[in-house]
Each structure stands twice: as structure tokens, then as C-alpha cells.
Design a protein around this nucleic acid. Structure first.
Length: 650
RNA sequence: GCCUCCAUAGCUCAGCUGGAUAGAGCACCGGUUUUCUAAACCGUAGGUCACAGGUUCGAAUCCUGUUGGGGGUACCA
């Protein structure tokens, strides 16, 4: 529509002798209730014309009608100038742009972008929250590809740390050698089972410690009571709060209190009274799991062997889920290899004066001038924290790929972390820091609140997919449309539809919005849904094949476009713009909503058009089939960006 | 406390850098199949765009404040 803007600028120059910028001309699609296709909002021009909006609109309208060939008429409603564009313009657009083979081809822009997503922990299976992450990450990757970027999909696997050791410890203590084979459980589910078990056992132990304390309490000296009593209180509170971090803090306080008492009373007589109690504490899972992490870091062969075995199970399980979801990666990074990174970066920061060292040796950055806080980047004992690793990993990723942009698909609870991370890298003078972007998305909540793996209140990814496929099967069979399908084709179709419903459901919502998922209410298959769009595609393909469609440009000498056909040409022509806008916003939701419009409009067209197959006017028939063909192509392409397959029949 | 995100129909969501009478789907009610797939189409009804100010020719959209909700907040990732 650039020629309209140019024409309007020219009009203002000719009519009012004013040079105006192009962005003064505000154009939009004409509302359906008025005649015309393009509307110029004239209010911003009034200050140049020094006339009323209506007069200005009339002036410009006449000018455009006389000087711009495509403008064949206009009308003015208040301050809105509605322009009628010649039908030949739309027909040319359709034939020379939409119908050309390169309409959907990608135009490479010679830029590289990395998309990091999924990034699972290897201590539990994937749940609905991960599903949103995976689908979003995959879809954004496809979107950026469609917008001409070279995309590197990366998965940074969180395969180490105290949470991994918890599953390991539980399996070691209470697993009786259970394996995926012996249990029939998928590897990630088996490991997740022990993660939940650990949590349960740990709580029991802590309760036991507390009640044991109350039993022996009477034999303690007043001093011991005072000391212990406080620590026990902290522990009990943490236990009641049901928050892992609070629990860790509570236990740490408690454990150090116990240690102090041991040191103080070791030589005294009544020490025996609390011996049993101390043993209980020292043998607790809390202590064992910390010890296990240390052993892992020291490379203890037994622990590392167990770690490798159990992670192996998890990876096998994840592969199945990933395959089912249709997501993939070009490169895996493992935190077990990267968790020590970043210390060089800390040194660099100290040398540059970006970081400073406190008396205890810990290293910090002061971001108060940027409205943030002081942030620890290295502990006093020289070990890394989360952000240390991320600094190092960011550098490594850039060294490996030299990408222009890097997108982190991570939930919004880490907004602050990434703000700090990017700011630090900028302050360190990394040229690539400005290409970093945190694609932050909202949590998926259940009606009952947040999902928690430890408590088993999660919607499991595998279960969910299976349920969706099962529902798709039921609904399809009710409609009785697959009676002549082979078993394999049926299986395929149900998977396509079930996943289509799930993926569309999660992707049509703006990423940053939080999502409420009610497992009791199944995901719809009608209306603004994946299956509706899939159905539309199948419908078109069926029509094209029955009509024995062949590509050819229609003869338009006797064809007049209906309003709906005109609308379709305009809507389909927007597809490339839609992609680049969606890519700019990193929002597959734009594409989802656009495709819904396309599908809806096609169905309207389909209903109001007499059967195309029986059309005797060959030019009209060709023209309509061409329109159908482009609609199908756009739907297929757009759904591909969402990671959703479209069936030929359904 | 401070920072940040969110609030649009009963429910789930669109509404782009401010533009005309705020749009869909689901659910509800009514209609459409002797014609290319009814997972469709057409229609009725449903709104103080959380609230209050401000900016402007014009505000769901921008600014300020209030309320309600989510998340974060220095050695968990």
C-alpha cells in the first residue's frame, strides 16, 4: 500500500504546499460497513491543510482519484477517507504475487539467531509447563526461519545439582534396583518417582527428628533446650511453609546448632543423652544428599556411575516425549560441563572494575544505579552461583556460533535474573550483549493453583498428549469420517489432530500471559482451535483433488470478484507481513490468530459459493480454485510455523 | 517495603506503533445439508475495557495514582 501513502504525501504537497513525512499518513483497512478497501485517517493532516477534516479528506480523495490510477473512487465519513481501489489492482496482486511460486519462499537475511529452549531438569518428567516452553521455543525457531534467519536450536540440560542427587539417593536407598525395564516405567517417570519419594522421606525424617527432640527434651540442660528449641522451631516453621528453600535454610540453621552443641558438650556427661538424636540428624537424607553432591563434584566413580545410569534413563524418556511433541535441537549443552564456567568472566569483570570484591572474598556487582540491587557473582569460597554459569555459558555459546541474536525461552519467574545477566554482559562491553533477548512466558496454572512436581500436582506431558490423541480418536470416530482409513493412517490422523488441538491451544495465547488449564474441561475441537484450521485445510485439499486442480492463471476478462473473494485476496496477501511482525514480536500467537481468520474466511467463502466443481465457466472455476489453493498453502505454511501438521483428509 | 507482569462478555482469548458503533470462540437460544467434508455456515443475546484522574480533535491502547492477582527480591537453579 506504499503507493497510497506516496500519493497522499504528494497530494498534501500539491494541495497545501507542505512537505510531510510518510508516517503522518495513517492508513488502515476500511471497515466492512463502508465502501472501499483502504482508509486514510485525515486528522493528522488537518494541521497541514488548515481545513476541516471533511474538506481535507475530499481534497485528498479527489487528488488521488485523478492522479493515482488504482484509486477509482472515494467517500468521506467524518475524518476518514475511504478509497476504492480498482479491482484490477487486486487481481494483479493475486496473479503476480500470491500465485507466484516464490510467494511462500524464504528470503534469507544472512543473520544467525540462537534459540535456547526446553532446558529440562533431569530429575523428573516433563509437565505442562515444559510443554508450553517446548512448543513456544520450537515455534519461535520456525518463525524466525520463516523470517529469513538461520536458526540454531539449543537445549541446555540441567543435569546436575542437589535436586538430581535427591532422585539418586532415593533410588539408592529405597529403589531395590528397579529399572525402566523391570518396572515398565518410562525412564524419566521412574526417576521422577524417586524424586517425589525423596521429598516424602525427607519430610518424615524431619518430623521424626522433631518428635525425638521432644522425647529427649526433658533430659537436656536448660542451655541445650534454649539452643535446640529455637532451631527446632525454625525447622518446624520451614516444614509448615512447605517451601524447599526455606526448608534448606531451616535445616542449615538447625544442623549448625547441633554441631555447636556437640562441640561444646562432647566431654560432658549428659552428651550420651543426645547421642541418638545427633545420629539421627547426621544420618538424615538432608546430610546424605549434600555429601553425595560433593562426591559427584569430586568425581567419585560410584556416584558418577549412578548419575550416568539414571540420567541415561531420563534422556531416553525425554527423547520419546520430544519426538511425540515434534520438537528437536541442533545442539545440546549440559550443565555438568558448564557449571564451572564463568570464573574467567568474573576475573575479566574484576580487571575491568565492573565487579568488586568484598572483605570475605565474595565478588559482587553494584547495579543500584540501574535501579536493581547488588548481585553476588561469585561466592566467598570461589564457587559459582547460577549467574556465574550463565555468564560463562553465554560467552561459550557466542564463541561456538557467533550468532547475531540469542533468544532464551524461559519462564517469567526469571525475569529479574535475565535482566541482570544481560546488563552485566553489556557492562563487560560484550558487543553481542545487545542481541540477547529473554522470551519470557507466563506460568501454566491449574484451577487448584501452581503445579508442583514434588507434590505430584502436575499435568504430565506424556499423559496429556495421550489424552489429547485419545479424545481426537473419539471425536473423529463419532463423526465416522475415517471408516475407509487404514489403521496406520487412523493412528497418524488422531495424533495429528490431538497434538494440533494441544499446540494451538497453548500457542494462540500471547506468550507473556499466564495460562489457566483446567484438566476437567478438555481442550476444544471446535471454533478457534487447531482442529478447525486443520479441518479447513483438509476440506480445501479434498476439493482440489476432486476438481482435479492444475495450476494456471485464470482469464479475468469476465470475472468480477465477490466481496468475500476480494477480502480473501487482501487477507492472504498479508501473510508475509504477518510473519515478519510475528517474528519481530517473537509471538507465534500472531500467526495462530491470523490463520484462524484465514480459515474462517475460507469457510465463509465455501458456503456462499455455489459448488466450484460444477462451475461451467472455466475461467471462474480456475480463479476460485486458485484462491483455494493459496489459502491451503498459507494454512499449511503457517501451521508449520506453529509446529502443527495439517492432514490431507479428516 | 521495593521491582516487575497482568486485569476486556458467564468462561477462554483477539484488539499492531492512539482512530469510526470494542471483536472472535465456547456455553445459551434460533436457523442452514436432494449441490464440492455440518470439526462448517448464518442469526439473537451477552460490555461501566478493574477503578479514578490526566494528555488529545480522538484513549481498551499513552502517563500518574488506587484496588485486586501472578512472579521476583543478594550466595536455589
Amino acid at each position: 500500500m506504499n503507493f497510497i501513502i506516496a500519493g497522499a504525501v504528494e497530494a498534501v504537497k500539491e494541495l497545501y504546499g507542505q512537505e510531510i513525512a510518510e508516517n503522518v499518513i495513517n492508513i488502515q483497512e476500511t471497515r466492512k460497513e463502508f465502501e472501499g478497501q483502504v482508509t486514510i485517517v485525515v486528522f493528522p493532516i488537518v494541521r497541514f491543510s488548515k481545513k476541516s477534516p471533511e474538506e481535507t479528506a475530499n481534497d485528498i480523495g479527489s487528488f488521488l482519484q485523478q492522479n493515482v490510477a488504482e484509486v477509482t473512487g472515494f467517500n468521506v465519513v467524518k475524518g476518514f477517507l475511504n478509497l476504492v481501489i480498482a479491482e484490477s489492482y487486486w487481481i494483479d496482486l493475486f496473479n503476480n504475487t500470491l500465485l507466484q511460486p516464490d510467494f511462500l519462499s524464504i528470503k534469507p537475511r544472512g543473520e544467525k539467531v540462537m534459540v535456547e529452549y526446553s532446558s529440562p531438569n533431569t530429575n523428573k518428567p516433563l509437565h505442562l509447563g515444559h510443554v508450553r516452553n517446548n512448543l513456544l521455543g520450537y515455534s519461535v525457531s520456525e518463525l524466525l526461519k520463516a523470517d529469513g534467519y538461520e536458526v540454531i536450536k539449543v537445549n541446555l540440560v540441567n543435569d546436575r545439582g542437589i535436586h538430581i542427587c535427591k532422585s539418586m539417593l532415593a533410588w539408592q536407598n529405597w529403589g531395590n534396583g528397579e529399572t525402566p525395564e523391570s518396572s515398565g516405567l518410562k525412564g524419566d517417570h521412574l526417576v521422577g518417582k524417586y524424586y517425589v519419594l525423596y521429598d516424602k522421606k525427607e519430610k518424615e525424617e524431619l518430623q521424626n527428628i522433631i518428635s525425638t527432640y521432644h522425647e529427649i527434651g526433658t533430659t537436656l540442660s536448660q542451655f541445650q533446650k534454649d539452643k535446640f528449641g529455637g532451631a527446632i522451631g525454625v525447622l518446624q516453621t520451614a516444614l509448615d511453609q512447605n517451601d524447599p528453600q526455606a526448608l534448606k535454610r531451616g535445616f542449615d540453621i538447625f544442623a549448625s546448632t547441633v554441631q555447636n552443641i556437640i562441640n561444646r558438650f562432647q566431654s560432658e556427661e549428659n552428651f550420651d543423652n543426645i547421642q541418638e538424636f545427633v545420629t539421627l540428624v547426621n544420618n538424615s537424607s538432608f546430610v546424605s544428599v549434600a555429601k553425595m553432591l560433593q562426591q559427584w563434584e569430586q568425581g567419585d566413580t560410584e556416584v558418577v556411575g549412578l548419575w550416568e545410569k539414571m540420567n541415561g534413563w531420563v534422556y531416553e524418556g525425554f527423547d520419546v516425549t520430544y519426538k511425540k511433541l515434534g520438537v528437536d535441537f541442533d545442539k545440546y549443552y549440559y550443565e555438568s560441563n558448564t557449571y564451572l564456567l564463568g570464573k574467567d568472566t568474573v576475573e575479566e569483570g574484576l580487571a575491568k572494575g565492573v565487579f568488586f570484591k568484598k572483605e570475605d572474598g565474595s565478588v559482587w556487582i553494584d547495579l543500584t544505579a540501574d535501579g536493581l540491587d547488588q548481585k553476588l557473582v561469585l561466592r566467598a569460597d570461589g564457587t559459582s552461583v547460577y549467574i556465574t554459569q550463565d555468564l560463562g555459558t553465554a560467552q561459550m555459546k557466542y564463541d561456538d556460533f557467533g550468532m547475531d541474536k540469542s533468544i532464551y525461552v524461559v519462564g517469567n519467574e526469571q525475569d529479574y535474573h535475565f535482566k541482570v545477566l544481560f546488563l552485566i554482559l553489556e557492562k563487560l562491553g560484550k558487543s553481542w550483549a545487545k542481541g540477547l533477548y529473554h522470551l519470557s512466558y507466563g506460568m501454566v496454572d491449574l484451577p487448584s493453583g501452581k503445579m508442583k512436581s514434588r507434590e505430584g500436582t502436575v499435568v504430565d506431558a506424556d499423559d496429556l498428549v495421550n489424552e489429547m490423541v485419545e479424545t481426537a480418536k473419539q471425536k473423529t470416530e463419532e463423526l465416522g469420517k475415517t471408516n475407509d482409513f487404514s489403521e496406520a493412517d487412523k493412528e497418524d490422523l488422531y495424533t495429528t489432530i490431538g497434538l494440533g488441538a494441544l499446540k494451538y491451544f497453548l500457542l494462540k495465547v500471547e506468550p507473556k500471559k499466564r495460562l489457566l488449564f483446567d484438566p476437567a474441561e478438555s481442550i476444544d475441537f471446535q471454533g478457534n482451535t487447531g482442529p478447525f484450521i486443520q479441518y479447513t485445510h483438509a476440506r480445501i485439499k479434498s476439493l482440489l483433488s476432486r476438481a482435479d486442480y492444475h495450476y494456471a492463471v485464470a482469464d479475468y476478462s469476465n470475472i468480477k470478484l465477490t466481496p468475500t473473494e476480494l477480502e480473501m485476496v487482501m487477507l492472504l496477501a498479508k501473510y508475509p507481513t504477518e510473519i515478519s511482525e510475528a517474528a519481530k514480536a517473537y509471538s507465534p500467537a500472531f500467526i495462530a490468530n491470523y490463520l484462524y481468520e484465514v480459515a474462517k474466511l475460507f469457510n465463509k467463502f465455501y458456503h456462499e459459493t455455489p459448488p466450484i466443481i460444477k462451475e461451467e465457466d472455466t475461467a471462474a472455476k480456475q480463479h476460485r480454485l486458485n484462491l483455494c489453493k493459496i489459502a491451503a498453502d498459507v494454512i499449511k505454511s503457517g501451521m508449520g510455523i506453529l509446529g502443527i501438521k495439517v492432514p490431507e483428509r479428516m
